[in-house]
């Protein structure tokens, strides 16, 4: 066919450079990415909801898990996470201010606000690393039963949680870390607990004011506290000591709680980390004057969209992990 049909629309429609819905190509693609990422995160959070509804009577109470604030001793539920949330919202604000300054072509202000955004992101990632370390290290210690349920200890006089070191005895026995080359090949201990099961059980029997708390939630929404007689019967079901949390054992309660905690906050933390890296790249471009020469700061706006999205996801993670 040698005759070329001209519709007269090549330049206006198919010639490129179109801005459907008034958004540029880059911004539209950023929104595409954000939508797919939002669906990924909702998949994770709904999976968390699924497991929680499945074990609704056993699920750990977040207020009792995240009770620490750096440099302070004592029981401060939620304060530190609230601080982290505030930091992230604050860095979102400096990001919008950077975008706003970009519209006005004020290079100096964009540099300042981008810098503050990066600092905020770094504080958040650091806080999350600290939160992970505290969670992994553990608090009071607990024992796990044959069926994988967690038994925690409470001081009957004060009503406060009792740590293993408060009552466990030190027996003249040798603790050997179980290695894979001794016994069944796929079994080995990840870490050695400070007390053996025997020491905890003997110490428990010898200390009358220690009671056992099971994972079961009662009508008040609190963990069930057994009396001394029930406790003495229950301790016989214990088969190992658990300190801290990992992917297999979790002293705070159901192990899926720890798994989802690592997975969801880890995936979010990875987003924050990559957001900080992208922010740093854009920050240097701003300093070099790339966008000043280009005549617009749309790149700042696009990375800003990603940064706000990370903040948006945290708002949901905060609610479903720490509040509800």
């Amino acid at each position: 066919m040698d005759a070329t049909v001209s519709t007269g629309t090549e330049d206006s429609v198919w010639g490129g450079g179109n801005r459907p819905l008034g958004a540029s190509y880059g911004k539209m693609m950023m929104w595409f990415f954000i939508m797919s990422d939002a669906l990924t995160f909702s998949g994770f959070l709904v999976a968390y909801g699924f497991s929680r509804f499945k074990f609704i009577e056993l699920w750990p109470i977040a207020d009792e898990v995240f009770t620490h604030v750096p440099f302070f001793h004592g029981n401060y539920p939620m304060y530190y996470v609230a601080f982290m949330t505030f930091i992230l919202i604050m860095s979102s604000v400096t990001m919008v201010l950077a975008v706003d300054a970009g519209h006005k072509m004020k290079q100096k202000s964009v540099i300042l606000y981008m810098f503050l955004t990066i600092i905020g992101g770094a504080i958040f990632v650091g806080s999350q690393a600290w939160e992970w370390a505290t969670f992994i290290k553990g608090d009071y210690g607990a024992v796990e039963t044959n069926s994988g349920r967690i038994l925690q200890f409470v001081n009957a006089e004060t009503g406060e949680r009792a740590a293993l070191s408060d009552f466990a005895e030190t027996l003249p026995e040798e603790r050997i870390k179980h290695q894979a080359n001794e016994g069944i090949w796929f079994e080995n201990e990840g870490y050695k607990t400070s007390y053996s099961l025997n020491e905890v059980v003997e110490g428990f029997k010898a200390t009358p004011n220690i009671l056992i708390r099971t994972e079961q939630l009662n009508e008040e929404g609190e963990k069930t506290l057994l009396d001394r007689k029930e406790s003495l019967a229950k301790i016989l079901e214990a088969n190992q000591v658990v300190e801290g949390a990992n992917l297999v054992h979790n002293e705070y309660g159901h192990r899926l709680f720890a798994d989802f905690f690592f997975f969801i906050t880890g995936f979010h933390g990875f987003h924050v980390f990559s957001g900080v890296v992208i922010n740093i790249i854009i920050f240097f471009n701003v300093i070099l004057g790339t966008y000043q020469r280009r005549g617009h700061y749309e790149m700042v706006e696009k990375v800003g969209l990603y940064w706000h999205f990370v903040d948006l996801v945290w708002v949901f993670v905060f609610t479903f992990f720490y509040l509800v």
Partner: peptide
């Protein structure tokens, strides 16, 4: 209350920080 307040926060982050309010 928590979930509704979360959605309220999400609305203002998306509408004002991600400036969806100014989009078509």
């Amino acid at each position: 209350i928590f979930i509704i307040l979360t959605l309220v926060k999400a609305y203002y982050i998306a509408w004002d920080f991600m400036h969806l309010r100014d989009e078509k």
